[in-house]
Simulated scan of single mutants.
Amino acid sequence: MKKLLKKIKFFSIVILIIFTLVASNEITHHKIAITAQPLNGCLSTDSLPCTDISKKTTSEPFIPDAKLNNQERFLSAIARKLSTIPQPGTYEYTLLRMYGAVFVNQDVGIKLPQKDIFASEQETQDFQATLTMAHVDGTNDCYLQKSAADALNKARVQQQIPLKSGYGSGDCTRTFNTNLRFWHKYANDQVLAKVQQGKETKILGLVAPPGTSQHLWGLAIDLRIGSKEQRKALNQNGWFQTVENDIPHWTYVGLSEENLSLFGFKKQAIRGITYWITPL
């Protein structure tokens, strides 16, 4: 009888400890600010893929913890959008570094893909079919995700901001095949293999590999910009240059310029043009 009582007492203590730990974890689980510790896995090539480390609903505005460094703040923001963050040294991580600025977007009207590579025209079409699109005023057939188009239209009311080609759809949301055609205009399969192996990155500032362009997501546009006033109007409405050396390319980030640093972006001036680069 005494042995039975001891066993019951022992298991009661164990259950109490487990309950305490679960309760404690539940409180931590719902904190908005993400500490540096959960991000360690995202920064190590030895660890497993970094899964979504913030389960707070993405419909609520997110403010990164100012105590984190630039990279950690950026990762804490994009972890709310991507189901898995690629590991450093991988092809996917290289693409995230170059084109991942859009994943910090806080606009609830914006829809983002769950990965940064589309494998085919069909996969691209399936994603684009879920988007709410809107027309860019004064263009022939230029469409973007509605929030991006609305912001661009506001900027174009402030300043005359022409598309790179003048009016064409190729400057706006593109199909997978259009992305592929642009790639073959400037590169080939051998160059793609080098990019995938991490041996070539300069080409990424000229053209995006097949299935990886921000244009596929309806969140990028190519423009002809020549004045500070035009840039100011675009910046005031959430549009920034985020792809280093791609001069015509503008990305809808949806943040104010004052908040870009808070989300970890690095300001970089190259030949008189200000780019906001991801800290990866």
Rank of each mutant, 00 (worst) to 15 (best):
D46V: 11
P49G: 07
C50Y: 10
D52E: 14
K55F: 15
K55E: 14
K55H: 15
T57P: 00
T58S: 12
S59Q: 11
E60R: 05
E60L: 14
E60C: 00
P61L: 12
P61F: 10
P61T: 12
F62H: 05
F62E: 06
D65C: 08
A66L: 09
A66P: 07
L68I: 09
N69C: 03
Q71N: 15
E72P: 00
R73K: 13
R73L: 06
R73N: 06
F74W: 15
F74I: 02
L75Q: 05
A77D: 11
I78F: 09
I78W: 06
A79C: 14
A79R: 13
R80F: 05
K81Q: 14
K81E: 09
K81R: 15
L82Y: 02
S83A: 13
T84K: 11
I85A: 05
Q87D: 08
Q87C: 05
Q87I: 13
G89M: 04
T90H: 01
Y91V: 02
E92M: 02
Y93D: 13
T94A: 11
T94I: 06
L95H: 11
L96F: 02
L96K: 01
R97V: 05
R97L: 01
R97D: 07
M98L: 11
Y99F: 12
A101R: 03
V102Y: 10
V102R: 03
V102E: 11
F103E: 08
N105A: 11
N105M: 07
N105I: 07
Q106W: 03
D107K: 05
D107R: 03
V108H: 09
G109L: 05
G109W: 04
G109Q: 07
I110H: 08
K111E: 13
K111Y: 11
L112T: 12
P113E: 06
P113F: 02
Q114F: 01
D116C: 14
D116K: 08
D116I: 15
I117W: 00
I117P: 00
F118S: 05
E121I: 11
E121V: 05
E121W: 03
E123P: 03
D126W: 02
F127S: 00
Q128K: 01
Q128C: 04
T130G: 05
T130Q: 12
T130R: 09
L131G: 02
T132M: 09
T132W: 03
M133I: 07
A134I: 01
H135W: 09
